[in-house]
């Protein structure tokens, strides 16, 4: 390397003249419009392109910093969008399930509603729904979701309503074991499980049996899932078993529900009342 350098400095005049003449020649080539000049220009463009692509690999630190900042910003925006999309996707899945449920049970008319408020820690738990009189909601209408029965309408406002959920001290409804058709009354005495009351000890009930609403109910249409039998205790005093039921609905995650426009049968109620009066 040093040898070449010393040779160049020794013959500096020769190299300077050569450089000048080469430069003039190149200027002449590029100032021309002949085929050859065109070819040279074409090659020059290629060479420029290749050299650009090579130099492009070498990073510019200032640009990198600015680019990094910009990318971080974009990343935050994209993450936010991704979260929103995930939310929407989950909502979509839930709504699809609900719709599927609706299709399966198209004998009833449904009023869709969002759960806008709920309490799960009191003895008298309830949910607040964003559907009211304007939407056709009435007291005692059943509330369901894709998993099963949620509760029933307790109070109705113009645009909102309050629903009594299964975990409410006053909630009672007729239910039955789906497999063995054994009837009972559903209630809640606190804790994380529901209770099936009035089931004689001799009746066929097994752990894992599905509990559904009964035809005896004047509020709920028959066949809607309530939950699964998780515990059976025959050692309690009296004639009846103690059956604990795990509800199908996860109330902690409840967001969208349907209010079933299930008409209250006044005539039936009247006859039953008359009979009881007698």
């Amino acid at each position: 390397m040093l040898k070449i350098f010393s040779q160049i400095t020794q013959h500096l005049k020769e190299y300077l003249i050569l450089s000048a003449l080469v430069l003039i020649s190149l200027l002449l080539i590029f100032s021309n419009t002949s085929h050859k000049s065109h070819l040279i220009s074409k090659i020059a463009v290629e060479v420029a392109g290749i050299s650009k692509s090579i130099t492009g690999v070498i990073p510019n630190l200032y640009n990198l910093r600015a680019e990094n900042k910009e990318l971080r910003k974009t990343n935050i925006i994209l993450l936010n969008e991704l979260n929103q999309l995930r939310e929407e996707k989950l909502e979509n899945i839930r709504l699809r399930k609900l719709l599927g449920f609706k299709e399966k049970n198209n004998n009833f008319e449904f009023i869709p509603a969002d759960v806008v408020g709920k309490t799960l820690i009191n003895p008298y738990n309830y949910i607040v729904l964003n559907a009211g009189l304007d939407d056709g909601v009435e007291v005692n209408m059943p509330i369901i979701c894709e998993s099963g029965v949620v509760g029933k309408i307790m109070k109705v406002g113009k645009k909102y309503s309050i629903g009594m959920i299964l975990f409410h001290k006053d909630f009672r409804t007729s239910v039955k074991i789906q497999r063995s058709r054994v009837d009972g009354i559903l209630g809640w005495n606190g804790g994380e499980y529901l209770t099936m009351l009035n089931v004689p000890k001799t009746m066929d009930v097994e752990i894992g049996d599905v509990v559904v609403t009964s035809e005896y109910s004047t509020i709920f249409p028959p066949g809607f899932e309530i939950g699964v039998v998780t515990e059976i205790d025959n050692s309690v005093q009296g004639l009846f078993k103690l059956i604990k039921i795990k509800p199908s609905v996860d109330f902690t995650k409840l967001e969208e529900v349907f209010i079933v426009k299930y008409k209250y049968d006044f005539e039936r109620e009247e006859i039953e009342q008359t009979m009881m009066g007698k």
Binding site: L18, V22, S25, L28, I29, N32, K36, I40
Partner: peptide, 11 residues
């Protein structure tokens, strides 16, 4: 074609 022969022959 001015230039190309000049370049080649200079070198």
């Amino acid at each position: 074609t001015p230039g190309i022969s000049a370049l080649a022959k200079t070198i």
